[in-house]
Each structure stands twice: as C-alpha cells, then as structure tokens.
C-alpha cells in the first residue's frame, strides 16, 4: 500500500512493541504496558493483535487469521485483507501451513507446532478487572500475588449454581506465578495453553497491554480440589465431519427449533472431511 511502511506501523513503533514483547516473554503472564497506537480499525476489533502481528510479521511469513475459529468470519476477512494490503504477505486458512496465526476467541483444534506464533486479540487483559475496577489496585494485587479474591469469586459461583459459572476467558495461572486472562476463548481451549510448543502472544490495544506465554510453559486453570477444572463436552458429534472432540457451534436450521452442531474451527472440519472423502 503506497505511503505506508511495511506492515503499516512505523519502525519506531515496531521497536517499542518488540522491546515490550521481549519483556513479556521474560515474565510469562505479566501484562507489559506499551504505547499502543490507533489503528485504522476500531479498538475492540483486534487492534492489539494487529499491532503485535505487524511487529513480528516478515515478508516471508504465511499468515492465518481466524475469528470464532473460522477463517471466513467478517472480521477475520477484514484483518487478513489488511495484512495482504500493507505487508503483501501470503495468507492461508490451513493451520499447519501458517507461521503466524492471529485469533479471536479460539485456539485451533489442530495442534500447533514449534516455531508457530499464535497472536490473541484481547479486549480486557486484566483477569481481576471485574472484581476490582481500579488499575492501581489490580497492579498491586499482581505484585503481591494476592489472588484470593479470584478464588472467592469462583467459589461464590459454586455456592450459587453448584458450578463455576465462568465458561470463557477462564483465568489461568502461568508458570505458578501470574494469574492471566487467556482472552475470551472458551474454557474448552484452556488445556491447549499448557505446555504448547508454539509461542503465544496476547495484545490488548485499547488497554495498551501485551503479554506472552512462551512455548512449553506450565499453564493451569484455576480450580478447587472438590471442584476440579473441567471443559465443555457435547452429546453430539460434528454434523459435517463427525468429530466428537472439537468445539461445536450450535446452528439453528429452521423455525421449528431444529438445530445442528458443527465444528467452530472451519479449517479443522474441512481437512477432516477432505481426509474422509
């Protein structure tokens, strides 16, 4: 795109983000403040992820962008177009072929491999925010490793509903130290954070925070001995590929209450169908 630098951001902004990324990797799960910039898409639509991707992406990289696990959702299409325009990179929908994957709300079903980078879009990076609205307070709570309130909140759910009522953006503890918001992925995806061979980077543009989980890092979902962490399960298999182990979207098929369940990860579903066929 004429008039703009490679990958849109100017080099100085990229360097600022790169320095912050190194600190994020050095202190897994800690939210590093960074001088986030306005991007040509709205805050809340992935500007944090876009800035991170723009700072790491190279001309030879192959990029995949997903939203809700799907490559063809409108915002995924829009962000993919953006990078095609400003960086001229090759894009793919195949998880296995991608070097960099930018995602909103899902981790691909296909296991990631060493060398891949998964960039998460994060709306509210602070896992304690809905318990304590003040940034000054939550910063102190992280410093003092004072996470009791989070357990109290989860336990209140158990008292009221019999279950922990957090189904997505389920808090995790990284390498035994920082409690971290894994972004609004369903808790179904939380186990994939643990010991993943890929590097996972998280960017919150509006809140101007970025953080990281290096490869092979211990990531535990918070839970209780008598209420261990568990993930969602479906009574159905995917109506398209027959998968009985992937995250399923419920699709309403008619006005008679008819519905079906299909994989939310479109690439995974398609490649399974390709293998079967």
């Amino acid at each position: 795109m004429n008039g703009y630098n490679f990958a849109y951001l100017d080099e100085q902004t990229k360097r600022m983000i790169r320095r912050a990324l190194l600190k994020a990797v050095a202190i897994p799960g800690y939210q590093v403040p960074f001088g986030g910039r306005e991007m040509p898409m709205p805050y809340g639509w992935g500007t944090g992820g876009v800035q991170l991707t723009a700072s790491i992406l190279g001309a030879d990289d192959i990029l995949k962008v997903i939203d809700q696990g799907a490559d063809d959702t409108t915002n995924a299409v829009s962000i993919r177009h953006f990078f095609q325009r400003v960086a001229g990179v090759e894009t793919t929908t195949a998880t296995t072929a991608a070097d960099v994957i930018q995602t909103r709300h899902r981790i691909p079903e296909t296991p990631l491999r060493a060398g891949q980078i998964l960039v998460f879009q994060v709306p509210i990076p602070e896992p304690l925010r809905f318990i304590e609205p003040s940034e000054q307070e939550t910063r102190l709570m992280h410093a003092l490793e004072e996470y009791g309130v989070m357990h109290v909140k989860l336990y209140e759910d158990i008292a009221r509903y019999g279950h922990i009522a957090t189904t997505y953006a389920y808090p995790v503890k990284v390498d035994g130290r920082y409690v971290m918001d894994p972004s609004p992925i369903p808790k179904f995806d939380n186990p994939k954070l643990d010991g993943n061979p890929a590097l996972m980077l998280f960017g919150a543009g509006r809140e101007k925070r970025l953080y990281a989980i290096p490869p092979h890092t211990r990531v535990e979902s918070l839970d209780f001995e008598d209420h261990p962490f568990e993930i969602q399960r479906w009574e159905h298999a995917c109506a398209l590929c027959g998968s009985d182990h992937s995250y399923l979207d419920e699709v309403i098929t008619d006005d008679q209450g008819g519905r079906m369940f299909v994989c939310s990860d479109t690439d995974y579903c398609q490649s399974r169908r390709g293998e079967v066929a």
């Binding site: 630098n5 990229k14 190194l22």
Partner: peptide
C-alpha cells in the same frame, strides 16, 4: 534494509528469549 532486516533479526531474538 532496516524494515526487513530488523524484523528477521527480531524474530530470532524473540525465538532465543522465548526458548
């Protein structure tokens, strides 16, 4: 080539720091 060279080097530094 500052834009592309520094990107390539950064990815190596990032790789070194994250592993």
């Amino acid at each position: 080539d500052p834009a592309h060279d520094s990107q390539r080097l950064f990815r190596q530094i990032l790789g070194a720091m994250s592993e």
